[in-house]
């Protein structure tokens, strides 16, 4: 059935498409600018005062050469990959074990335990007591600080527990009759049945690790341990000039290269995520849904 559109409706459609195109452009502009700037000529880039749709001046790769030749960027890149991998493995393991135990009907104190744990989500000791605790535990300048203290995120725990509780008890009971232990039940029944939720939580943990800069900035003094985000902060926010010390021939012209290097570093550090993201997009959507069902 074709319904004839009113003129007002037609106008709305056109305006809507234009408006959404404009929004998309605004969301895309920072990324587009960054990519174009990273290929620009350093001097033209400094003098540029407008949005870039094409690299300013001659196309160069000199910024990338400086970035690729920079040891601290690569070092921190490696650190971040380590923190993300180790943090995610430990995190998902600890969180699912906790979620499994606290979702078992026969585990009597589960509600009491969850009550205590949920309370920590609403109220916490705050910045300073946490800092003092970490330093008393000797975790300052230790790689463990990225992995242990944040291993179990309460929100993720609740999401996983909700998923585990949704699995029918009868499955577990019949497995037990067949002689399966907790270990077997978790890996053979619970985990495969909640694959989607587990992958969402893995994603949440990994992205949180990748992005984290505030706590590492408190807990690390040793530059060799810095995650990528802290080096990025130095380059982008603090405007640290020690960057090109490695290649002294350009350090005299450093001020020229500052901006170019900033954009090249952003591209190098963000590209992997932006390339993966269209593929994980659907999981993120699922994750948001799960989080809200809980609410």
């Amino acid at each position: 059935m074709k319904v004839k559109e009113t003129p007002g409706r037609k106008i709305f459609r056109v305006v809507n498409v234009l408006f959404l195109t404009a929004i998309s452009f605004i969301c895309l502009a920072p990324i587009l600018y960054t990519v174009m700037a990273s290929f620009s000529d350093p001097v033209s880039l400094i003098n540029s005062r407008s949005m870039l749709f094409w690299p300013a001046g001659e196309i160069t790769l000199s910024g990338y050469e400086l970035v690729f030749g920079n040891k601290s960027i690569w070092k921190s890149y490696g650190n971040t990959i380590f923190y993300v991998t180790a943090g995610t493995i430990v995190g998902i393991f600890a969180t699912s074990v906790a979620a499994y135990i606290f979702s078992r009907k026969y585990f009597a104190p589960k509600n009491f335990c969850m009550l205590l744990i949920s309370f920590t989500m609403l109220f916490n000791g705050g910045l300073i007591p946490n800092y003092i605790l970490i330093s008393r535990l000797g975790l300052i300048d230790s790689r463990l600080v990225m992995i242990i203290p944040g291993a179990i995120n309460v929100f993720n725990l609740i999401v996983l527990r909700t998923a585990f509780m949704g699995i029918p008890d009868s499955l577990e009971e019949s497995a037990r009759l067949d002689g399966a232990g907790d270990f077997c039940i978790f890996f053979r029944i619970i985990a495969p049945l909640s694959k989607a939720t587990i992958s969402v939580v893995v994603l949440f943990i990994a992205v949180a690790q990748w992005n984290s800069w505030f706590l590492p900035s408190l807990y690390f003094n040793d530059r060799d341990l810095f995650p990528l985000q802290l080096i990025l902060r130095e380059i982008l926010i603090v405007g640290n000039m020690s960057l090109t010390n490695a290649s002294s021939d350009v350090s005299s012209q450093f001020s020229i290269y500052t901006l170019l290097i900033q954009y090249c570093t952003i591209v190098v550090s963000t590209l992997p995520i932006l390339c993966i993201y269209p593929f994980i997009q659907k999981y993120f959507a699922k994750g948001v849904m799960i989080g809200s069902i809980k609410g």
Binding site: L20, T21, I23, S24, C27, L28, P30, I31, Y33, T34, W210, N211, W213, Q229, L232, R233, I235, L236, I237, L259, Q262, I266, S269, T270, I273, L274, Y277, P278, Q281, F284
Partner: peptide, 23 residues
């Protein structure tokens, strides 16, 4: 439109703030 508008969410806080400051 959806894919593009999700994109800024995947820039880390540090990178996003760095861009804001520069722009």
């Amino acid at each position: 439109v959806q894919t593009i508008t999700y994109m800024p969410y995947f820039l880390s806080t540090v990178v996003f703030c760095g861009l804001i400051r520069n722009f």
